[in-house]
């Protein structure tokens, strides 16, 4: 066990689950949207809705979307900073069936109109679990480099991607596939042992059946 998990992390208070974890959920949502977000609709569920403002969960999520880390002293001012940057944020209370009490549902848009919807839970001690991306079930902790590949659900795509990673010496530590229905769009989530070179993700993007490929560096 790492001593800096016990003496640390350095974070903006008051709560590792309601503040630090919320920043990390925001980080993940921000990383999944191409370019800068201009609009965000943030749904707060359970304890996030009940005690969110007192814990700064709203400001923490906003800060995370803009890429701030959990130790950034600007987190308390993040809503004002979002305004200055032209990011329009709306908060709403929501109820999600069976979701963890500390769950946020974040939809983001960029200037080009691209959008992404991310549901994530803060599960304690600043640890998070992203449960779904654009309605497709995932299980992402953000602790390892994570590769997300959106593709057509046809034979050979998974083999193609995993072989390509193997050829480039990248080891896969975890794998999950999720799809809306057979033959439709599918999402591969690959947890990798090390962060691959940009050329590897560019190579995967050239595969004919692949519409999007995003590599997320481990969250801090």
């Amino acid at each position: 066990m790492n001593v800096f998990d016990v003496i640390g992390p350095v974070m903006i208070g008051p709560s590792s689950s309601h503040t630090a974890g919320a920043v990390r959920i925001g980080n993940m949502a921000g990383a999944l949207l191409p370019g800068e977000p201009v609009r965000a609709v943030i749904g707060l569920h359970g304890s996030f809705a009940k005690t969110g403002r007192g814990h700064g969960t709203d400001r923490a999520l906003a800060a995370g979307i803009m890429g701030m880390l959990p130790s950034n002293s600007d987190i308390p001012r993040s809503l004002e900073i979002a305004k200055e940057r032209g990011l329009d944020i709306t908060f709403e209370e929501i109820e999600l069936d069976g979701a963890h009490p500390n769950t946020a549902l974040i939809q983001l848009w960029n200037r080009q109109g691209d959008t992404v919807t991310v549901q994530g839970a803060s599960v304690g001690g600043g640890e998070i679990l992203i449960n779904s991306i654009d309605g497709m079930g995932v299980e992402i902790t953000g602790n390892q480099p994570t590769l997300l590949v959106l593709h057509r659900d046809v034979p050979g795509v998974i083999a193609g991607v995993t072989n390509y990673l193997a050829m480039n010496g990248v080891n896969i530590g975890g794998f999950k596939l999720s799809r809306r229905k057979k033959g439709d769009t599918a999402l591969m989530t690959l947890e990798l042992d090390e962060l691959p070179d940009e050329s590897v993700t560019n190579g995967i993007r050239c595969f004919p059946q692949i519409s999007r490929c995003v590599l997320i560096a481990p969250l801090q």
């Binding site: 016990v6 003496i7 640390g8 992390p9 350095v10 974070m11 903006i12 208070g13 008051p14 709560s15 590792s16 503040t19 630090a20 700064g56 400001r59 130790s71 002293s73 987190i75 308390p76 001690g125 600043g126």
Partner: peptide
């Protein structure tokens, strides 16, 4: 008050 701290062991 949302200041910066070291979780030791928790916030």
């Amino acid at each position: 008050c949302m200041g910066r701290i070291v979780a030791a062991p928790t916030a």
